[in-house]
């Protein structure tokens, strides 16, 4: 029990019925039960409308279950008296960095949340500097956020969440609006949080290469968890993922096609290095 960060128990959710009174709209989340262990990096995949963002928003009580329960570090998200503590311990980073920045100076923006939490000012200074260094934006601390690139803004938004000193951060498609170098930066930060700080990371993404870096991949479809396992276990299910409108990393696709052509190869050589080694053995 103690080592579970987020737990959903038969979580069910639907958005309000429209004015036509149509009651037949399907549940966005239908009895979802998952446990996310502390200190792990979990990627959630799923097509648009699969319910993955809705699931993420339950993790820090941005949405409340219409059925079942969600607990964050043992705290029931429905308990209003715990709301502030839940939000402090489970931070959220969204797709669009422009919607997450509130101040005219980078360091003030990062200090915004701890100031509101009533953290002593010396401690705020320490946290802000530390957060900005972690995301590699310390030298931009006195810049105006709106003049930064999308990738830099997203790093500032992440620093703002880090300054709350959370134990878990939920990233909802944080790289969707970024260019390749911005994406790389965000993924490096996630890696650092997971391995250096021991932060629990939940990453919602459409990028299979990003999910391949996680400890665990959960695949959602139509409000259900349809796959759950290590990246190597999930991505070998090429045909099922195709049917779900998802895809697999190109390395897996290549191995799959070669296998179909009669070459005996393992499908789980996910990284380019692993894939190259496996292929060099066969074809070198």
């Amino acid at each position: 029990m103690m080592d579970i960060a987020i737990k959903t128990d038969n979580l069910t959710y639907f958005y309000n019925v429209d004015e036509t009174g149509d009651q037949d709209i399907p549940d966005v989340l239908d009895n979802v039960s998952i446990e996310i262990e502390k200190g792990t990096f979990v990627a959630i995949l799923g097509h648009n409308g699969s319910g993955k963002s809705t699931l993420a928003k339950h993790m820090n009580a941005l949405l409340l279950p219409k059925g079942g329960t969600v607990t964050a570090f043992g705290m029931d998200t429905k308990d209003e008296s715990l709301l502030l503590e839940i939000r402090r311990r489970v931070g959220m980073v969204f797709q669009n960095p422009d919607n997450q920045i509130v101040s005219n100076v980078v360091e003030e923006d990062v200090a915004f949340a701890p100031e509101n939490l009533g953290v002593p000012s010396q401690e705020i200074r320490r946290r802000v500097d530390d957060a900005l260094k972690t995301v590699g934006m310390y030298e931009f601390r006195s810049h105006a956020p709106h003049l930064l690139s999308g990738g830099q803004k997203q790093r500032v938004a992440i620093a703002g969440v880090l300054a709350m000193d959370p134990d878990c951060i939920v990233f909802d498609e944080p790289t969707a609006m970024l260019d390749p170098s911005g994406r790389r930066d965000v993924m490096e930060i996630i890696h650092k949080l997971r391995y250096e700080r021991g932060t629990t990371v939940v990453l919602i993404t459409h990028h299979m290469e990003e999910a391949a870096l996680a400890d665990r991949v959960i695949v959602m479809s139509d409000g259900h968890v349809v796959m759950d396992g290590k990246p190597k276990e999930v991505f070998v299910r090429v045909e099922e993922l195709d049917e779900l409108g998802l895809t697999v990393p190109e390395t897996t696709r290549l191995l799959f096609e070669l296998k179909n052509a009669g070459v005996d190869l393992p499908l789980d050589a996910l990284s380019i290095d692993e894939c190259a080694k496996v292929l060099a053995d066969k074809f070198g």
Binding site: T251, L254, L258, A276, K277, L279
Partner: peptide, 27 residues
């Protein structure tokens, strides 16, 4: 990714020719 993989494979001595950038070309 496939261009990168092609480069690695050449380092390992796999004699791939031409520019490769799709899964189909690599296959």
């Amino acid at each position: 990714e496939m261009t990168e993989l092609a480069e690695k494979l050449r380092e390992y001595g796999v004699p791939l020719e031409g520019t490769i950038y799709t899964v189909e070309q690599m296959r």
